[in-house]
C-alpha cells in the first residue's frame, strides 16, 4: 500500500564554491568562499498534489529542482521519493526511480536537441527505459503523446526550430511524459511564454495531471500563476524556506513578513483595489548574507534577536513559518 506522501525533502543544503582560482587566492591571501544556494530546506509533497516554490531570482528554486532530479548533489540533507533516495539506490530500483521523476525546463529552445527530429526526441526515454518493443509500437506511442499535448502525429518528422515557443514546450512535456513518470519537476515552464500561450500550457498541465494522476513540483516567480496551479506553496528567500502554507491560506493570511512583501509587490492587474504597502529594499548578496534571520534588514518586525539568531520553524494554522515575530506573536494575523 502506498502512503499519501510521495516526496520528502529533509534539511537540504547546497553550497557552491565561488572562490577565485587557487593561485589568485594564494597570492591575494584570500580564503575559499562559498555561496549558500539552498539552506536547510525541508518540505513534503503528497501524491497527486501540486507543490509550488516561489521566490525572486537567486532564491534557490532551480538549484532545488536540479537537486531533486539528481543533476547536482547536495552538500547535506536527503531527498526521498517513495521512501527511496536516488543517491542510495542501484540497479533496477535506481532505473525505475529515475524514470518516475522527470523535469521540464524554462527554456524550450535550449532543452530540445535542435538536430533531432521531434519523434526521436520523444522516443528517446521510451527506448532508454524499454517501455515499448519494436519501431511500430514506439512510433504509435509517440503519436499518442503528441496528440495528448495538442500536437499532431505528423509533427514527429519535424525539427524543433519549426515550432513556436509554446509548441516546443508541448514537445518538452510529451518527452517528459514518454517515460511514464508520476512526478514532474517543472522549473518556470511558462516564464518564457506570452500570457495567452501560458494559459494554454497551464490548462494542458492541469488536464494531464488529472488524466495521469501526476504530482508536480511547480516552480515560478509569478505568484498569480502559482496561486492558480498549486495546492501548497513554499516561499524561498536567499535559499531558505521562510513559509510553507496551503495556497489559499498563503494568500488570505500570509504569515511571514517576506511573503507579505511579495504579495504587496505583485501588480494589481485586475485593478481590484487590493490594499498594499509600499515595498522597499533589495535582496542582499547570497555570498555574505545578513546574520540571524536573513530578511531582518528589510523587515519592519525585526528586533535584536532577529539580527542574531536564525529563526526556528514553527507551525501556525497549518503553515510552517520561519520567523521570530510570528513565533513570538508579535505580528498580527492580517487578512
Amino acid at each position: 500500500m502506498s502512503s499519501d506522501l510521495l516526496l520528502e525533502v529533509k534539511n537540504l543544503s547546497c553550497h557552491f564554491d565561488v572562490s577565485k582560482p587557487w593561485l589568485n587566492r594564494l597570492i591575494e591571501r584570500e580564503p575559499q568562499r562559498f555561496l549558500t544556494a539552498v539552506d536547510n530546506v525541508s518540505f513534503n509533497i503528497n501524491r497527486g498534489e501540486t507543490f509550488a516554490l516561489v521566490g525572486e531570482s537567486g532564491s534557490g528554486k532551480s538549484t532545488i529542482a536540479k537537486l531533486i532530479v539528481d543533476l547536482i548533489h547536495p552538500s547535506s540533507g536527503q531527498i526521498l521519493f517513495d521512501g527511496l533516495s536516488l543517491r542510495e539506490t542501484q540497479g533496477e530500483t535506481f532505473k525505475t526511480l529515475r524514470r518516475r521523476i522527470q523535469m521540464i525546463f524554462q527554456d524550450p529552445f535550449a532543452s530540445l536537441n535542435p538536430r533531432w527530429r521531434v519523434g526521436d526526441i520523444i522516443a528517446e526515454p521510451i527506448d532508454a527505459f524499454g517501455l515499448a518493443k519494436g519501431q511500430g509500437e514506439v512510433s504509435k506511442r509517440v503519436e499518442t503523446l503528441l496528440d495528448k499535448v495538442g500536437l499532431s502525429g505528423r509533427d514527429q518528422h519535424k525539427y524543433p526550430h519549426e515550432f513556436s515557443g509554446g509548441q516546443r514546450q508541448r514537445i518538452a512535456i510529451a518527452r517528459a511524459l514518454s517515460a511514464q513518470p508520476d512526478f514532474l519537476v517543472c522549473d518556470e515552464p511558462t516564464s518564457a511564454l506570452d500570457v495567452s500561450v501560458q494559459a494554454q500550457i497551464l490548462n494542458l498541465m492541469q488536464d494531464l495531471q488529472d488524466e495521469f494522476g501526476l504530482t508536480y513540483l511547480f516552480i515560478s516567480h509569478d505568484l498569480s500563476v502559482v496561486k492558480h496551479m498549486a495546492n501548497r506553496i513554499g516561499v524561498l528567500y536567499l535559499g531558505s524556506m521562510v513559509e510553507n502554507s496551503e495556497s489559499d491560506q498563503l494568500f488570505k493570511q500570509p504569515a511571514h513578513p517576506y511573503t507579505r512583501m511579495l504579495l504587496d509587490a505583485i501588480p494589481d492587474h485586475e485593478m481590484s483595489g487590493r490594499r498594499r504597502k509600499q515595498v522597499t529594499g533589495e535582496i542582499p548578496s547570497p555570498i555574505d548574507p545578513p546574520s540571524g534571520c536573513t530578511f531582518h534588514p528589510r523587515c519592519e518586525f525585526a528586533n535584536t534577536k532577529c539580527t542574531q539568531e536564525r529563526p526556528k520553524i514553527h507551525e501556525i494554522n497549518g503553515s510552517f513559518v520561519s520567523c521570530w515575530a510570528s513565533a513570538e506573536n508579535r505580528i498580527s494575523i492580517s487578512s
Binding site: 500570457v195 501560458q198 494559459a199 497551464l202 490548462n203 498569480s224 492558480h228 505583485i266 485586475e270 487590493r274
Partner: peptide, 18 residues
C-alpha cells in the same frame, strides 16, 4: 488568460493558436 489573484478560476480562458 491571466491567472487571477482575487478569484478562484478553474480553467483559464484560452485563445486558440498564436
Amino acid at each position: 488568460s491571466i491567472p487571477s489573484l482575487t478569484e478562484r478560476v478553474d480553467r483559464l480562458v484560452q485563445i486558440p493558436g498564436s
